Simulated scan of single mutants.
Amino acid sequence: MIAMQYSLALPADYDMEIIDRRIQDKGPLLNGFPNLKFKAYLRAARGDLGSHENLYAPFYVWDKAEGASDFLCGLGFQALANDFGWPSVRTWIVWQARVAPGFREAKFATREILPIESHALLEEIRRRDSDEARRIVESGDVLAAVAGFEPTTWTRVRFRLWDKLPETCLGRNVQTYRVGHVATGRPSPG
């Protein structure tokens, strides 16, 4: 599995209703997309939930890398690039991606990016982050949890979908978003 996210920083006076309409119009179009586990359409407005800027920042989890490639090479992404410019797309190798029933009804999301210490035991970090993702979904604390890492900058990601956002989520390394829509794709065969 692979996770990816691009984040479009928008001007401070940008009318975020434009992004809300875009999510409403385009969100359902990815339902059934091959190899997509889910896409969370995310937005952050300056001054809301601790955000310092206006952002449109969808987060994707792909069952297979071919899904990400097909999407990025397709007309939908080209339309986004035509409207906003060609964004940098961050990717992570997914260790664990868990979803609970009703995860498509999420109202909030958090993304935390943490450094991996030099020469750390990756297997231990993978086990710990994977176990935590599994546990918090099974306990009902979150609607979805993704844990993964990126071996170019040696960082790891923790992504969560929430029904209600706990105050403990508002932290230094945590970007908080409102969820406009969650699309689910078509599982990969076999």
Results as ranks from 00 to 15, higher is better:
Gly190Ala: 14
Val182Asp: 04
Leu72His: 13
Val157Trp: 01
Ser7Phe: 02
Leu75Trp: 10
Gly76Leu: 15
Met1His: 10
Val137Phe: 05
Val99Glu: 13
Ser7Arg: 15
Glu53His: 01
Pro101Gln: 11
Val179Met: 05
Gly74Asn: 01
Ala12Phe: 02
Phe38Ser: 04
Pro189Asp: 11
Ala68Glu: 09
Lys39Tyr: 04
Arg90Trp: 07
Tyr6Gln: 07
Gly74Ser: 12
Gly74His: 06
Val89Met: 06
Phe159Asn: 07
Arg178Asn: 10
Ala79Asp: 12
Arg158Tyr: 08
Arg158Ser: 12
Leu55Glu: 02
Trp86Pro: 04
Leu165Thr: 02
Phe108Ala: 07
Val146Ala: 05
Ile93Gly: 10
Arg21Ser: 11
Ile116Phe: 02
Lys26Cys: 10
Ala97Gln: 00
Leu75Glu: 14
Gly171Ser: 08
Gly102Thr: 00
Lys37Met: 08
Arg172Gly: 03
Arg98Asp: 13
Ser51Pro: 10
Arg134Gln: 15
Met1Trp: 03
Gln96Ile: 05
Tyr14Gly: 02
Leu29Gln: 11
Ala147Ile: 04
Ala120Trp: 03
Ala144His: 07
Ile93Trp: 12
Ala183Met: 09
Trp92Cys: 02
Gly74Phe: 10
Thr152Asp: 14
Glu138Gly: 11
His119Ser: 13
Asp20Lys: 15
Leu143Met: 07
Val182Arg: 11
Leu8Asp: 08
Val174His: 10
Met1Gly: 12
Tyr56Val: 03
Gln96Ala: 15
Asp70Glu: 15
Arg178Ile: 09
Val157Ser: 12
Leu165Ile: 00
Glu150Thr: 04
Gln78Ser: 11
Pro87Met: 04
